[in-house]
Design a protein around this nucleic acid. Sequence first.
DNA 1: ATTATCACG
DNA 2: ACGTACGTGATAATC
Length: 873
Amino acid sequence: MSQRFMILDGSSLLFRAFYALPLLTSPTGEYTNAVVGFSNMLQKMIAEYKPDCMVVAFDKSRHTFRTEMFADYKGNRDKAPEEFSAQVPLLREFLEGWGIPFLEMDNYEADDIIGTLSKRAEEAGGYEVLIVTGDRDALQLVSKDVNVLYTRKGISDIVRYDEAAFKEKYGFEPIRLIDLKGLMGDSSDNIPGVPGVGEKTATKLLLQFGFLEDVYAHIDEVSGKKLKEKLTENQAQAELSKKLATIERNAPVEFTPEEYAITPDHERFFAFCDKYGMRSARQGFEKLYPAQGTLLLELGTEETEQKHKAARIAGRNEAEVFADKLRKASVPAFCGVYEGKVPHLKLRALGLSTGDENAVVESGSEAWDILYPLLEDASLHWVTIDLKSFYHVGGSREAHVEDVQLAAYLADPSIGTADVEQLRSIWLPSAPAISADEDETEKAAEGAGIVSKLWPVIFEKLKGYDMEKLYNDMEKPLVAVLAEMEENGIYVNRDRLSAQAEAVGKKLLDLEQEIYTLAKHPFNINSPKQLGEVLFDELGLPAQKKTKTGYSTNAEVLNSLRYVHPIVEKILEYRLWMKLKSTYLDSIGELIDSETKRVHTTFNQMVTATGRLSSSDPNLQNIPVRKEEGRIIREFFEPGEGYDYLLSADYSQIELRILAHLSQDKNFVNAFTHDEDIHARTASEVFGVPMEDVTSELRRRAKAVNFGIVYGISDYGLSQDLGISRKDAAGYIKSYFEKCPGVKSFIDGTVSEAHEKGYVTTLFGRRRDLPQIHSKNFTQRSLAERMAMNTPIQGTAADIIKLAMAAAYRAIKDAGLKSRILLQVHDELVIETTEEELSKVQEILRGAMEKIVSLSVPLPIDIHYGKNWAEAK
DNA sequence: ATTATCACG
DNA sequence: ACGTACGTGATAATC
């Protein structure tokens, strides 16, 4: 019987945990998130693998034998953030209490300690070694007796690598990982490798020849002249890279297995947890090491597993029994298993849960006919995840169904669209994770169980934040509106679209030839790297900006070089058409539904940090409009069969009007109340000229300042935008604030409130946490401060149009019109309508959009309509 | 998986 | 002195 010896890479796991969890703090203000995450992972490891002995290895200092060999080793690493470093000593304290030995050594990395200990254990025999790490390099240690548990993402997604699993993934045995690194390098450790050789080429070479040395021994057999050259030129560098990637397995560290037992010190550990407010760590520890004399009322493991195993219900009788339980459940929950795409989405199965008991029911079974109707039963109050999909498959809008995902997003928008497992790990970290190796329907059942438990916790939080109304009256009603918009889709004239795609394709071929001639040879124009080499190395144009990987070739740079060389203009033109063809013409064509002839975008309600919607597959919120060449794309969006016009209704200056309302600045409120040109008025104030003397240039500058204010102004940003000096920009801002003191005090007030509370809110109570506002790092803190200025404005605008959408939707429906909302583009709604309904629909939109809230300034909309989206602007 | 670029509000 | 405009998504290239 072999001993199971677990070795943890403390440094890498702590780092993973740090980035996986939000910055939690103890009651006394110390950061604890990394330790909390480490603790969760440790508990899981011990519970699952029950190791006989354990050691945690740490990196000690940056200076190691590797930096002796190569000074730049890991030279590209930023210093770890203060919030992280402060937790390293905390983890030691934690391990001391838990009774787990740890090791660190001068001149060696944690990897080398792990490599050495695992080798000694192999030599001694009788050990099964499990290495837990978030560092891929350790995979080279995998052998018959040594496996690696690698944290793929965050800390909960762990994969076990044994010899077979490694071979499956890489195609060769583990030790050759160092040869791979020798060839391809490792950007995260700043290991150079052979430039131009990536994973693909490196793997090919190793499979063909064996080890790195074999590649060089057979260098003549390498195919490709370029590749051979690169390999020969960089042989020394490849060999050094291999050495750097090789874990030292004979480090001067003693192997003393008798000292590696876990010896929990309850008192010490509890004191630690209490001091740092780590309740779940304490609970988990207690579960693993029950104090003597405490009576255990826990369920046996077998029984626990039984509990999570979902019953598959097919027959009528079982269904009746489970239906009864659901009716009595305090939080009945379901998770749908969907297949297909909107507007053809189908419900294949349901995971159901009473909170205590989970079940699966498949569509088409006898049980389905008994259980599905419960979802429409108004006496049940259901919870699900992804309510929009439920609506897509015909779920009743009248049914009482909550969406945990939506509630969780509102409580913390930074998590975005979190799946059940993510929500569990955030909100119920001590509950068992969803089993990984079940089929989709079983996961749905288990998911339903979790959803049932999540809802009370998350909704309670929402109530604590005073966000119930936001959820009930704004976001939840919007779900049905978005579902319908997605199902509606928008008609795209496929013939005109593909004709244009073809024409643009020809144009691109011509441009390509002209560019090759001017460059004197063909190259990949789409590659910024190759383009940079052609422009700046070969043609000798003056390089001005650099990116971290080479020369910058963006539009700003190219524009400034327009008249230096004729190739530049051609490249700009090539870029313009290439963008239009690949992003719009080709890909939208592919997304036209063959049955409906329309494109059905997805409106994501749980993505942005500010409360805006986003659109994807395809993104219909970024269809070109500013440039003539791009605007053509809009011509292909037309009213579909049975409709005559596309109509667009957009808010005029909504963000600046919100700024006026929130700040109560006299100038702004006045200007908007009298419907003045706000940018001209700003110019007049800031530059001290009468309104009639405001030139278009002055207006342009004032407009830039107004935008700057909305984004969270900085003199640097404004100077970049206007192409003026930072000093001048600072001067503009100064006189702006003198003339608009209301705006100034609003911004100052918002930022200082963010510092005090750690979050900001919109007019309707939407919340955004800004943990970085306390950062000691200037850049991060400044970013958070700009977010603090921008979020209440952008977020309030998002709130308003969301309310307006639901109101317009309702009003159109109540009026019995066939007109319908197709798209939302942040401050604009696109509607499909008919000749007869044209005036009625305009009236409804004005009522819904302009009257939905009453601010200190009016909120007028502009309406345009036409035979396509380009005309409706 | 990340980076550079560019489309929108 | 630090070193940035706010919010998104898609594509192609490169790692």
